[in-house]
Amino acid sequence: MDTILEIRDLSVHYYADRETVQAVNGLNLSLTRGATLGLVGETGAGKTTTALSILKMIQEPQGRIVSGRILFEGRDVLTMDRAEIVELRGKEVSMIFQDPMTSLNPLLTVGEQIAETVRKHDRVSKAEAASRARAMLETVGIPGGRAEDYPHQFSGGMKQRVVIAIALACSPKLLLADEPTTALDVTIQAQVLEMMRSLKEKFVTSTILITHDLGIVAEMCDQVATMYAGEVVEYGTVKDVFDTPKHPYTLGLFESLPSLDEDRDRLRPITGLMPDPTRLPPGCPFHPRCPRAMEICSRLSPEPVRLNGHLVKCHLYGKKEG
């Protein structure tokens, strides 16, 4: 299989008030060309930071990529110079941000905001870019005539369509969608997701979909990676992970969901809170909340183990050590 993106040992830290926030810690991930990967986890698990790292958009000096490699089609993004990275962004890798309300420049027409990325990457004339912007708007279900309108004239769902249009304007090979529907109404969510799925088929784009909604993952994704405290703790195909979740954290996520099939009296939330990312516990970061924690978990960070088609980072499945 053709791998479009491979992340190895990525660590990203933020520095605030003399504290170091360990947002991403030794993350490993790979994405097959044409596939959709769901990145799930609680708020603060480092999902957005991972996505921003792929575009080398961690704001220095507050944040810094401490170590790791991000190979996009075999080229390391992190060693690219400014000119190369600017060519990559929007052209080969695009990102959709969480909040459509604030993601658009209020002073530029939406047409202009789509056209400028076309003009930048495909080096076409102003008129050509404008007509492509209108075409792109129509692709996402907005009349082309509205290209002259400003963002404040659109509703939240429409704005997110515009954001998607910007992201797809240059037919990127990889799309990073950071909770694209979280800020929207449920009915609008479904529309936007449906549109994204059909667009993905049209553009054959590989996608990383960041979400904390397991339902969306089941709907949209081929593969899924569960993140906890800046690490991928379980990774595999949606079928494998959803049918036989292995990591206690993934299990916990499923159990905290209401289910229509099973008869459950009560939801079983994961007890406790995410660890403070400035003071991560030693060993497995999940052990203080883990119902099946063992003595070794507080000492040693587990190595990833391959279990019938998916990777799990947990001592339950590893070789037991003294």
Binding site: L55, M57, R82, V86, E87, L88, R89, G90, K91, S94, M95, F97, D99, T102, S103, L104, N105, P106, L108, E116, T117, K120, H121, V163, I166
Partner: peptide
């Protein structure tokens, strides 16, 4: 966020600042 969007689109930094 919209400046971040502009950066993510691959706009050159001077354009991000100016425009």
């Amino acid at each position: 966020d919209y400046v971040r969007t502009a950066r993510a689109k691959g706009m050159d930094e001077h354009l991000v600042v100016r425009k």
